[in-house]
Design a protein around this nucleic acid. Structure first.
Lengths: 201, 201
DNA sequence: ATTCTAACGCAACAGTCGTCGCTTTAGGGA
DNA sequence: TCCCTAAAGCGACGACTGTTGCGTTAGAAT
């Protein structure tokens, strides 16, 4: 997570960039240590050694902070695992999701919660997810090349079918993490995909 | 939505019940008219013609109000539609979900948002959903009886697989409502179920 | 080196949220 | 009918959030 990203304003060098780096780092640290409820603008500002008004002016609210954090995080070089089978790839993906959602501190949940309070955070989180799904398209491509899938399979639908149950159980239904939920959801989606559920008009 | 439910306290008659009815009705009306952001304890109290502290003492926060509202709503006689086919039943269910989430005012979204702020609201919402899933079990039973499904299909898994993509797309990913999302998600889940994805160990 | 200005620091402010101690009232029981 | 008490009313309070006007500073331009 590089913190040297240049600010987009007209004075990128020196202080602005430094303040941004300090504040974003403080945001992440505060979120990790005290969860979403402990994530107030005041706490972040104090932790970053910066005045409250500076944060309010540049980021508007906590949602803005998280959005900025997410934009930076989205630029990492993440790629889906390549296990050799469609079901294996989807399972690995779901296991990452499960680990992320069930993690302590609940970073993902905090971001989702924030997205309900801040349109800015919501946009950033959705962009992050869409980017992730786009990167995962290769999973379907590989499966097609191996002959595991009918040609023309719509990767996004397949990926949503595979991952949605994990999010749904953990985030919305609040069921305790089931260690083989990732595999069963992946298997179900792979089965449907092989049967052609995501091809055709 | 009957508002004559008796309060569970030790003084059920008269004032307590009247206040509860007034406050719950005001909560619903305020939510419908001004959305979740306009749903403050103060606004509800004023609307109900009741003092702020009364609301804070009996319901603690907005989450408590919504939880109480949900408990009342869960007692309706809702039943899943019976269309004659598994896929039809699941599609109808998904269409109800889509309508609920995409509705204006966004009642469902407001409840979900509240569940991230209030553990009480979260519990109530989850109980509501589990109750709905339990009532939907009959969909799988009917399908089994028609020979559409292998015996021993786990209804909850099937229902989650069918409905999760709808919630995921609309609530988390924020994609605009796709009118045939309900049908495609239902078809996918039904396909997997027929192939035995939800049977066995 | 000097100047100029975008960005930050600062203090005071209004608005909101949730709590507390006390008083008043309604309604159930004798 | 009278009393007793659970519940509601009331005002004040502290904590937090977000804004504004103004002074200060760092660093970019020349």
């Amino acid at each position: 997570m590089p913190t040297t990203t240049s600010a987009s304003g007209s004075r990128p060098g020196g202080r602005s960039a430094r303040v941004r780096a300090q504040v974003l780092e403080a945001t992440g640290a505060q979120l990790v240590e005290h969860g979403y409820d402990g994530l107030t603008v005041d706490a972040v500002a104090e932790r970053a050694g910066v005045h409250r008004t500076t944060v309010y002016r540049r980021w508007r609210d906590i949602g803005g902070l998280l959005a900025d954090l997410l934009d930076a995080a989205g630029d990492d070089g993440w790629e889906p695992a390549d296990t050799g089978t469609l079901e294996g790839d989807l399972t690995a993906l779901n296991e990452e999701i499960l680990a992320g959602v069930a993690a302590d501190p609940p970073l993902t949940t905090a971001l989702i919660a924030a997205s309900f309070r801040s349109a800015q955070a919501a946009r950033a989180l959705r962009a992050f997810w869409e980017d992730r799904y786009a990167r995962c398209a290769v999973v379907a491509v590989r499966a097609e090349e191996r002959g595991e899938l009918p040609p023309g399979t719509r990767s996004r639908e397949l990926l949503v079918a595979a991952t949605a149950p994990v999010y749904h159980e953990l985030v919305l239904l609040g069921t305790p993490p089931d260690p083989h939920l990732p595999a069963t959801a992946a298997r179900t989606a792979a089965l449907a995909a092989r049967a052609g559920a995501f091809t055709g008009p």
